[in-house]
Structure formats: C-alpha cells, structure tokens
C-alpha cells in the first residue's frame, strides 16, 4: 500500500542545501564577525569613557572659572553632544550584540550541526541588517534636515 504523500515527497536535488563550500564560508564569516564585534564593543567602551571624561573636564573648567568664547560654545553644545554621542554608542552596542550573536550562533551551528543555532544566527543577521538600515535612514534624514537648517540660517545672513 502506497503512502498518500508519496508523490509530493521532498526532492533534495532541487532544493537549496548547505554545501561544504557554504559551511566553510559561514565558518570564516563567523570568525571575522566575532572579531569585528569584539573590537566594536571595546571601541564603544572607549567612546563612553571619552564622553564621560569630556563632560567632567568641561565641568572642572567651569568650576575653575575659565571663561573663553570657545569653551562657552563647547559648553553650550556639551549637553546636546553628550546625548548624541551616548545615543550613537548605544546603537553601536546594540548592533554589535546582534553581530556577536550571529557570529557565535553560526559558528556553533557549523561546528555542531545545530539547527536551532543555525536559525538563531540568521535571525540575528537579519536583525543586524534591519536595524543598521533603520539607523542609517534616521542618520541620513537627520543630516539632511541639519544641512537644510544650516542653509536656512546661513543664507539670509550672507544675503544681508
């Protein structure tokens, strides 16, 4: 007696399947991705230290009574710049986390033939690309608006 689903059986020859070359490329990709994400975490840490030390230096100079136009300008920009830098660092950490998870999960999947890790790796890869894309769109829009604002501020001054 034949199975009812005999004719719709899975034909592996016509389907995408992980080959030896793919696995080698995934393994190397995972190694580089892990390295890049670890360096990214270190860079984010250094950036965080720099931001906090800059805030402290500005506060100390203000306490010491140093009063120059340059310092005043930096001080007025200070809070905004600090928030901007903190947001950038936070985004970098989040993206690095996706990258790190992608790297470690993919390596585990290739080494141990772990299907769950394999799916998690590509989920994190998709998330990395998706959020990088969203962040890039926000950044481009932000720069465009900022450029237009600068033009609007500068042009009347030059005209007058």
């Amino acid at each position: 007696m034949e199975n009812l689903d005999q004719d719709i059986s899975f034909d592996a020859s016509n389907q995408l399947a992980p080959t030896r070359e793919m696995r080698q490329n995934w393994y190397e990709t995972a190694s580089w991705a892990k390295f890049i994400s670890i360096v990214g975490f270190i860079m984010a840490g250094i950036a965080l230290l720099l931001v906090s030390s800059l805030t402290t230096i500005f506060a100390m100079l203000a306490q010491m009574g140093v009063d120059t136009p340059g310092l005043n300008l930096l001080n007025s920009l200070g809070t905004g710049m600090t928030i901007y830098m903190l947001v950038l660092v936070a985004v970098q950490v989040a993206l690095n986390l996706f990258q790190y998870r992608f790297a470690t999960r993919l390596k585990t999947a290739v080494q141990r033939t772990d299907q769950v890790a394999f799916e998690e790796a590509w989920l994190n890869f998709r998330n990395l690309f998706r959020w990088s894309g969203v962040f890039l769109i926000v950044l481009v829009v932000f720069y465009l608006v900022f450029s237009l604002y600068l033009l609007a501020v500068l042009l009347p001054t030059e005209g007058g």
């Binding site: 389907q15 995408l16 399947a17 992980p18 030896r20 696995r23 999947a109 033939t113 299907q115």
Partner: peptide, 8 residues
C-alpha cells in the same frame, strides 16, 4: 550537502 542535519 555535507551536513544532513542543517536544513534551510
């Protein structure tokens, strides 16, 4: 496929 375990 050299890895029957991994499926796309």
């Amino acid at each position: 496929s050299s890895s029957p375990g991994l499926q796309i």
